[in-house]
Design a protein around this nucleic acid. Structure first.
Ligand SMILES: [Mn+2]
Ligand SMILES: [Mn+2]
Ligand SMILES: [Zn+2]
Ligand SMILES: [Zn+2]
Lengths: 138, 138
DNA sequence: CTGCTTTTGAGTATCATTATCAATAAGCGC
DNA sequence: GCGCTTATTGATAATGATACTCAAAAGCAG
């Protein structure tokens, strides 16, 4: 049977209290910095579990690192992610769902899944970027 | 200046003669098996160059490995990929382009890029799958 | 051809992720 | 509460992809 441990709960909470996507590594570092003695392997396992149970969403960063997030929307959805700060907006996209399904079957493909993510700079990071770009060097 | 070497050409050819997405590792293994003494680091460098020059497309496999392909379409496009054999179909998706752009700006995001890939089983692999599933064990 | 400079590649380093496995601790019946 | 069974943990090692190092090799302008 599946047992309840403070470790799993700690990972769940850390994910929930974070509003953007995070990597297993950074989540582990964060927990440690807050005094938790949780092990790295356990964080990886907990995240994999949460993801397989549908409690967390995961995606590959453009650099290839796996990122996780506790999403509020329960059904299938996609994400708009700030590539600087990780801030994430959940987005529904019925049109895209249908498009993906149609395009696959039109070419004889079955069992189609899709990866649809939008990466950009959130409003805050856009402002910061502009400020630092126009700021004169010392 | 950029020099021409048989290594870069070998990678370009290997990519072109392959109709699906391939990883740097498997491309290197393939070249070696055909007698080429090309080095692994060179394959990585050549693929990175081809990708940055727009001669190759790249994406992250669901497992996080970088895959490359020499695409016939020159402009921006997406892919329908067989997760078993790698066979790839290039697909245009104007609707999705506009959707991505709109969704980003609606939320104040700037400099938006998107990742849109469809993975499935091509017709051939679907048939093979069905055959092996119904085939009685010895 | 010569000389300068880029490119190569074997080896090493890095970094994320997974596997090991002995020690620990849930949850169960009592 | 008390053991007992067994899932879970975590330090550590293993794996695997990718990047770096640097001396040797090879383009190419003159
Ligand atoms: Mn979708
Ligand atoms: Mn697009
Ligand atoms: Zn941001
Ligand atoms: Zn196939």
């Amino acid at each position: 049977m599946k047992r309840n441990t403070w470790q799993r709960e700690a990972v769940r909470e850390a994910l929930t209290s974070n509003d953007g996507f995070v990597s297993a590594q950074s989540l582990h570092t964060g927990l440690r910095e807050h005094g938790s003695p949780i092990g790295l392997a356990t964080v990886y396992r907990a995240l994999a579990d949460l993801a397989s149970e549908g409690e967390a969403d995961s995606l590959q960063s453009p650099e290839g690192e796996a990122l996780y997030r506790a999403c509020s929307t329960s059904g299938h959805h996609h994400h708009l992610i700030c590539r600087r700060c990780g801030t994430t907006v959940e987005i529904a996209a019925d049109d895209v769902e249908q498009w993906a399904q149609r395009v696959a079957s039109e070419h004889g493909f079955t069992d189609a899944r899709h990866v649809v993510d939008v990466f950009g700079l959130c409003a805050t990071c856009t402002a910061l970027e502009a400020a630092s770009a126009s700021a004169p060097p010392i």
